[in-house]
Amino acid sequence: MTTAAPSVRAKQRPADRIFATSTVVAGSLILAALAAVAVFLIAQSIPALLVDPAELKGSPSSFWAYVAPLAFGTVWAAFLALLMALPVSLGIALFISHYAPRRVAQGLGYVIDLLAAVPSVVFGLWGIKVLAPAVTPLYTWLTENLGWIPLFTPPVSGTGRTILTVAIVLAVMIIPIITALCREIFLQTPVLHQEAALALGATRWEMIQMAVIPFGRPGIISAAMLGLGRALGETMVVAMVLSPAALITFVLTGSQNPSTIAGNIALNFPEAHGVGVNALIATGLILFLITLVINSIARIVINRRKAFSGAN
């Protein structure tokens, strides 16, 4: 005679355990892989930090003197790309979410996604063979007429293989990323807010200013940061288009341009040997840390937003 009914528990079959465990292992494997990326990059970077800097490429005074122009070029090119891509992406996202007729909006979204499907090496080929010759006359004009601005100090590059050309191609490549995220966020704007603004007599732009932009601001910021992260790590365009030099300069149109970390690795890795390989891996580690921080911040902002909006 039992007095209290025993709580019924589902029978644990061995197959259930095996399956559940294998999913946990797979999930943990991802975390382990990310940790392994950091560990192995650090392990392979240490020789470069300890070696006599004279053995590095270009004989810099220290490892950090070797990295500084590359880090500057990486951030500078990505910043320029973001500067160009953000307004255009916002425009496209608004166009698709609030301006285009609903029937064609989806199709227009696919067209922009096509840009994201083009492999980066093809963008590089296009940048060097089509874009660079096309913008060279513009650069000549800029240096001749606006040369007093430090950004356009003469002499002009004769080939168009400058950091501005790289930034333009990078901008084209990150436009679909920023657009896709902004579009999603703009579409989440509460319809009641928008209709209320329109009912009060606002024009469509005033409605967007009052209802859509304030609602989407955190999302726009994190979308921009994700685009920045992509631009920081983009390799082939820089390796193919830029004519690199080891210096720090803000000039956009000259023939002496700071290279980027990723582009420098791609150009020098196939021929590198000995401690040169370690130095390149060390720069890669720095790139990894920069993008990791930027992506983490962007994701934290997005995730917090999810909790706010009640979309989930």
Partner: peptide, 8 residues
């Protein structure tokens, strides 16, 4: 991880 640069 979706944002890791491919070269890394």
């Amino acid at each position: 991880m979706t944002g890791i640069p491919s070269i890394v």
